[in-house]
């Protein structure tokens, strides 16, 4: 077991393993830091959602907590004007490419976006950006769950789980840039893919993109 160190988060002294990522130290100690793409089991963080910014004492620029390793004496603040600005901006960017209408969303009670909005006082609507065009196509081919791409935030949790935990590899990232998406090999429906409907991806999804047909928040 690695060495224990003491770090400070928002003034609270917390014991952590040296090298452990600050995001997990905070979350394990009930200190909220916004995040979407992080998975504790994943050794190398993806760092793609850019929501977990924190302010490190002695460093001018905010740092992502998912890549920040705990070491003795490290002191971080989960909020600062700079952090709040970046989080707000990343949040609005994600929202601009996400189908809203939370009332009809099957995940409205367990949505990570709603939680971030609540915790950080952010609005679930666009203030300065225009909504990007979304292709609303829902893959309902699996028996137990469905995939609504217009609510996908590209956090990649489902992809990693499908490949590394379920070891099925039905889901992957396809395309590049603004057209990047989560999909199957050759874009076949999930039912035609090697998907075994193990459901791990659905449990990993932080938004309403993947949801069980029977167990959604409505039922």
């Amino acid at each position: 077991m690695s060495k224990k160190v003491t770090i400070t988060i928002d003034g609270r002294e917390i014991e952590a393993h040296e090298g452990e990522k600050v995001l997990w130290v905070a979350l394990d100690n009930s200190i909220f830091i916004p995040n979407l793409c992080a998975l504790k089991e994943k050794e190398h963080p993806s760092g793609s959602c850019r929501l977990c910014y924190v302010q490190v004492e002695g460093r001018p620029e905010p740092v992502t907590a998912c890549t920040l390793a705990a070491k003795e004496g490290l002191s971080v603040q989960t909020r600062s004007p700079q952090v709040d600005r970046l989080v707000k901006s990343a949040f609005e960017l994600l929202l601009s490419n996400h189908r809203l209408g939370c009332g009809r969303c099957p995940r409205r009670k367990s949505c990570a976006l709603l939680k971030i909005a609540r915790e950080r006082g952010l609005k679930m609507r666009l203030s300065r950006l225009s909504a990007l065009e979304l292709d609303v196509e829902i893959d309902e081919s699996p028996e137990t769950f469905a995939f609504d791409r217009s609510r996908c935030l590209l956090c990649g949790r489902c992809v990693w789980i499908c490949q590394e935990v379920a070891r099925v590899g039905a889901l992957g990232f396809t395309n590049r840039g603004i057209t990047r998406r989560v999909g199957t090999f050759r874009e076949v429906s999930l039912a035609q893919s090697p998907c075994t409907e193990c459901g791990l991806c659905v449990e990993a999804c932080p938004s309403g993109a993947l949801y069980f047909k029977e167990k959604s928040d409505d039922k």
Partner: peptide
């Protein structure tokens, strides 16, 4: 297209 800021 990986990260939010650059992609969007």
């Amino acid at each position: 297209g990986k990260c939010t800021f650059c992609r969007l």
